[in-house]
Design a binder for these strands. Structure first.
Length: 128
DNA sequence: AGCGTGACGAGTA
DNA sequence: ATACTCGCCACGC
């Protein structure tokens, strides 16, 4: 008897499958075009489910399989612990960055959210 | 059940 | 710019 009996409270998830929510998050992450970024909160809103922290959790657990550097914090701070890895990608993809000023020497650049943020509906972008 | 923690975010001082 | 508070929600102890 092929039984996939659903437990009283829920779902019988195959061991080789990610939680549905996680798959959706990763899916969105892969849609972000090179040179652009989306915030954790944006992804959550886009999915109309969960919140920034939930998206962050998914990225920390399964983000390695997708362009994780394109899902960022709303304040543009580079991901702690992966700053250099992310920075390399940004410089390669031409993602808009805000270089640290002279007074902030030693600080790594932050993302220029005004220009790098992607709304999910790519439009032509003027020029500088 | 409470409580701390986290790849968050917005607001306030 | 920094620090702190709160709201948020899933997890682990």
């Amino acid at each position: 008897m092929s039984e996939v009996s659903l437990p009283d409270d829920g779902r019988a998830e195959p061991a080789d499958a990610l939680p549905e929510y996680a798959e959706r998050v990763l899916e969105v992450a892969e849609l972000i075009p090179p040179g652009r970024v989306m915030t954790y909160g944006d992804v959550a809103e886009w999915l109309a489910e969960g919140g920034p922290r939930q998206v962050g959790r998914v990225m920390s657990l399964y983000g390695g399989a997708v362009p994780w550097w394109r899902v960022v914090r709303a304040d543009g701070v580079l991901l702690p612990g992966h700053e250099l890895r992310a920075l390399t990608r940004y410089r390669t993809e031409g993602t808009p960055l805000r270089e640290a000023g002279r007074a902030a020497e030693g600080h790594l650049p932050r993302l220029d959210m005004r220009r790098a943020r992607w709304d999910g509906g790519e439009r032509a972008q003027g020029h500088t």
